[in-house]
Amino acid sequence: MDTEYDWITTPVTAGLLRGALDVEHTDHGVLPHRLPARARAQNTDGQLAMAESQASGVRLAFRTRATAVELDTLPTKRAYVGAPPRPHGVYDLIVDGRLAGQGSVTDGNVVVVDMIAGTAEHRPGRPGTVRFTGLPDGDKDVEIWLPHNETTELIALRTDAPVEPPRDPGRRVWLHHGSSISHGSDAASPTGIWPVLAASLGGVELINLGLAGSALLDPFTARALRDTPADLISVKIGINLVNLDLMRLRAFGPAVHGFLDTIREGHPTTPLLVVSPILCPMHEDTPGPCAPDFSGLSGGRLRFVAMGDPAERASGKLTLGVIRDELSRIVKQRAADDPNLHYLDGRDLYGEADADELPLPDQLHPDAATHRRIGERFARLAFTADGPFAPPS
């Protein structure tokens, strides 16, 4: 370590973290989790295990006079056989609410995925350091948002001035659950994913349970939502159920009711917003499953295609159109006895005109510009005076 700064090391503890529901102690340090241990113990799906351990919406938060900050981490990255290297995860430095720097840790573990063979190999790596210098002098609120698309073990936090716990922001807590789009797939950085953008515009504190490939109405996820203190809750339901071809219409309706019932056990009157899928042309009227198209993989282009048959809707297979109709019906039915339950059609966040202007690059996930558009629209529809999450009068 260089001697340019008189470094002070501060242990990374749960008290410095926001956006994590659990913290696991590892051989290297601490690993934030976005699902509690009880939920993780009931899960056998590797995709969900990976998704919940990735730090979407998780950040270190503290107050300090420091002008330099270093964070040692051990990331776990992904690489795909036959594809160009993926960009390294980005750490966003926020000082007094504004983006003040970005960096990456280039070392770390790598999971090498062979999508054709269906295998994954874990290759261990070494820790690395992200450094931010030139911060303004004087007391300030500092946040380091961890990469939304990497698992990040936190080893050491160093500063050139003492660190204090963060001030209570006094903002309402928004708890959100959704799919890879909410997780942040194809966003440029952790503060560029649409829920973070919406939270910033809405003046709320975000806990993001966007779980890539894993918004599947799992009961343990519902219990995690039930047991997490929150002032506002939203659940974005649909796309993963279709692209995994997980269930039929007969099971879908009762599963949605059960999911909402469980949330209401812990939050009986909290504003609860059910959001249907954004437009995804390939699955609007065609059921899943969806499958990757490897033809452009060597050039860094991965696309997805729908494998179902539109005629299968007659036997109860789900499409996004079917899911929107059913979610709208369920919310309307329940809202008769639950005035704090609301519905938002996802096409109001990203619809046909948006798809013409900003098509989904891989047929499934929005790019960085589209994340911004979705976040801005959600903030306008949910957090303004006429929205379900309107500020208290």
Rank of each mutant, 00 (worst) to 15 (best):
F259W: 05
E326K: 12
H283P: 00
G266N: 09
T262K: 01
L297N: 03
M282Y: 04
L246W: 04
P289R: 07
F252I: 13
K332P: 00
C280F: 06
I330K: 05
A314I: 01
R250W: 01
D261Y: 06
G253W: 04
D309H: 06
T286V: 15
R301L: 15
V275H: 06
A314K: 10
F304L: 14
S315W: 00
G299M: 09
P289A: 13
G266W: 09
E265F: 08
Q333P: 00
E284F: 03
S276I: 04
V331T: 09
I323H: 07
L318K: 02
H283R: 07
A311F: 04
D245V: 00
T262P: 02
L302S: 07
R329N: 11
V305E: 13
A311D: 14
A335M: 11
P281Y: 12
M282L: 14
I278F: 08
A306H: 14
D285H: 14
V274Y: 07
P254A: 04
D293A: 11
E326M: 06
P254V: 00
R324G: 10
L273W: 09
L246M: 09
I323C: 07
G308T: 10
F304S: 10
S315M: 03
R248L: 13
V322E: 12
G300E: 08
S295G: 13
M247Q: 02
P268V: 10
D309F: 05
P254N: 07
G266I: 08
R303H: 14
D245A: 14
T262W: 01
S295N: 13
T269A: 15
S295E: 14
S295D: 15
R324W: 04
P281I: 14
K317F: 00
A251I: 00
C280Y: 03
D293H: 12
A291H: 11
D285A: 14
G316K: 03
D245K: 04
L302C: 05
R329S: 12
L260P: 03
G316Q: 06
P271I: 08
P277Y: 04
E284P: 01
V322C: 07
H283D: 10
I330Q: 13
I278G: 03
T319M: 00
S276R: 04
T286W: 05
E326I: 11
L320H: 09
E326G: 01
P281Q: 13
R313D: 05
T286H: 04
V305R: 14
L318S: 02
A314T: 07
A251L: 13
F294V: 11
T269N: 15
L279T: 07
V274N: 05
A255T: 02
E312H: 10
V256H: 06
C290N: 15
A311N: 09
G308K: 08
F259Q: 08
P281H: 08
V274G: 09
F259E: 09
